[in-house]
Amino acid sequence: MAEQLTNLLVDLKNEKFLSQLKDRATKEDPVKILDECKRGMEIVGERFEKGEYFLAELMLSGQLFKEASAILEPYLLESGAQEYRGTIVLATLKGDIHDLGKDIFATLARAHGFEVHDLGVDVPASTVVDKVKEVQPNILGYSCLITTSFEPMKEATEEIEREGLREKLKLTVGGGATDEFTKKYLNADFQTTDAAEGINYCLKVVGGELNE
């Protein structure tokens, strides 16, 4: 049964997946059900890495995971706090209102066990700094689709450095307008246009694989 739910997610059998999930949510341990969904997302990620799955499958499985999380949420609240692998603060900075890539990344990160603080789009640098101070994330992620948000990202980063917070986190930047020049300009630790590659990086950060 457990494998079936995982497989339904991996195979994008949306109707059967949601129907089985709703049925089981009323009867079984919601943490266990959520773990099965997370396992499904891991398999989707593995297939993506092998080139068997594409962004489309990441998006669709991410949507199913999002729906599953919403269905399970009341049961999870009843059963107590969840454990997270790590914390991510995500934002698309001032001047940029694109949210598609950021949302896909946020969903995947949640599916991989991260606590995600998604600050949304058109976010002022000060909001990013305040949130970093508050939650002290392992990873700060900027999403960027237009070049005019390079400066607000730089401003936020410099403020984080001034506050002495930069050494405590890994800074990542992703999105179609970014490349190696963006990474260098922001003094970021990682850059990608590939959401799954970004998740792998985050897993390495919290897994201690990047410690020097």
Binding site: T147, F150, A177, T178, D179, E180, F181, Y185
Partner: peptide
């Protein structure tokens, strides 16, 4: 020529 290079790079880049 990538938009990031045009926005952040140097003329020699």
């Amino acid at each position: 020529v990538h938009p990031s290079l045009l926005s952040l790079g140097k003329p020699e880049d």
